[in-house]
Amino acid sequence: MYVDPQLKAVVSDVCTLPLNHARISAAKRAFVTRRVDLSDAKRIDPGATPRAGDLCLARLVRKGHHQRLELTTGRRARMEPGDEIIVAFGNRYATDQFHGVVPSQMGPCHLVAAGGIAAQMLDRHASTRKPTEIETIGTLCRADGSPINLADYAMEAPTPRIADHSFVIAVFGSGMNAGKTTSVCEIVRTLSRSNLSTAAVKITGTGAGGDIWQYQDCGAQHVLDFTDAGHASTMGLEAEALERIADHLIGQVDGKVDCIVVEIADGLLQRETQMLLRSEKFRSKVGSLVLATPDPLSALGGQQFLDTLGYRVAAYTGRISASPLFVNELREATHVPVLTSRDLESMDSAPLILMQQSVFDQHERMVGVA
């Protein structure tokens, strides 16, 4: 439908307010906003209905669990009541911290992730302190009044490559804090020692820089996560959107390196994780699957769950490495290799184990091949 530009400008003036550039410059800018060109922010809409990915100016009211804000540089800046911050609306699913959703309106809500996620907390883990309280002042807008959203600054879709594809190793966890990110880093180092070039990609999760900084530190040549695809978090997305993120991020580095190590957030039973596991499109990209786990029973339960979906586990790793007794128990209970941190550091055959094909087809599932 055609809208007269003059009428649009009048509506913009009524709904939004001019934004002082000095005010934006003085505000602490969160990690999840790092791809956004803030020179585009000319106005602010205090009455906007929040949407996932929209940038907003907020004011710290009371400090809680998150005492510092992770900046675009990775530095964690101390916050005090009254400080203004630039964050993005988003959902959060963290079994050991917060469950939060995009608020229904501007005003009081919570900072549920240090990377800069504004949400309404629904519940929290018993060991987690109350969330930091913020007040959202308004959505940042362009001169024409349109809201600024992370999706507008996503990386361009990759050009399909005809050349050889990279081998994809997907790292899943039996649950949250199973040691997935540490496992990704150890795998990257292992592959690098075998003269294999690597990229590290995080497809799902909540926007924060900690994981990707670790990827960089361990020597991955290319590092990407879902915020590069325009999302503050992936909680609540549908399967098609998750597939697009996987296509987008893996496609950016496919063929540029020998191996792509992919991390999937949270645990096997988490909604978005299950969607990716059940996606034939995602399955077609995966060469092997490594399961990070804290103990033998979680490993065996995870293996059984993955078998029903058509995946073999190439290897176990993760927090189980911390307990030699757990490692011995698991090795006695399964034929699947258990690669401890020491194994990944010193075992010459580790790359061959990690790159075993882990996906089997529908026919094999139907005839019960394990």
Rank of each mutant, 00 (worst) to 15 (best):
V3M: 10
N195H: 15
V112K: 02
H231A: 08
G207H: 11
G209E: 06
S174N: 05
M106S: 03
L150F: 06
V112N: 03
Q214I: 02
Q304C: 06
P337R: 01
L344N: 00
D164A: 14
G207P: 07
G230T: 12
A220M: 04
D348K: 08
W213C: 05
G210P: 07
V11Y: 12
L268F: 04
S183M: 04
M121I: 10
V11E: 14
C56A: 12
F31L: 10
C218S: 14
L19E: 12
D144E: 11
G210Q: 14
D4E: 09
M79A: 10
I134L: 05
D4G: 02
D37C: 07
I137V: 14
F172V: 05
G287S: 06
R283A: 11
L352A: 14
A30N: 10
R312C: 07
C56F: 02
A163I: 02
T128R: 08
E238Y: 09
M1Q: 14
R92G: 08
V32Q: 04
E186S: 03
E238N: 15
T198R: 03
G209Q: 13
R34F: 15
L122R: 12
R342F: 00
Q214G: 10
D144N: 15
A9E: 15
E135T: 13
G205P: 09
I187D: 01
V87S: 03
G82D: 04
I86Q: 03
E272R: 10
N91M: 11
A322I: 06
A370E: 11
Q105S: 14
S25Y: 05
T204D: 05
D96L: 13
S323K: 01
L140T: 05
G209C: 10
V168T: 08
I250M: 15
T308Y: 07
H65R: 08
H66A: 00
A157S: 11
T72G: 02
D258K: 06
L7H: 06
E243A: 14
L344R: 00
G209V: 09
S25D: 14
L55I: 03
T227A: 10
C15V: 12
S284V: 03
V253K: 02
G53Q: 02
G255T: 10
G207Y: 12
S174H: 02
L306F: 06
P103N: 06
M176S: 11
A52Y: 07
R43G: 04
H165D: 13
H21L: 09
A299N: 00
Q304N: 12
G107L: 10
L344D: 00
A157R: 03
R51K: 15
S127A: 13
A118H: 01
T95H: 09
A208G: 12
R59I: 11
L191W: 00
T204K: 06
M155S: 06
T190L: 00
L38D: 04
V338W: 01
V367Y: 10
D217R: 15
R76A: 03
D266W: 04
E133C: 05
T206K: 06
Y2I: 06
F98R: 11
G100C: 07
C259L: 03
P5C: 11
A241N: 07
L55Q: 02
S104G: 12
I203D: 06
V286A: 07
T95C: 07
A200F: 05
I203K: 09
L277Q: 06
P46S: 06
G210H: 15
G219S: 01
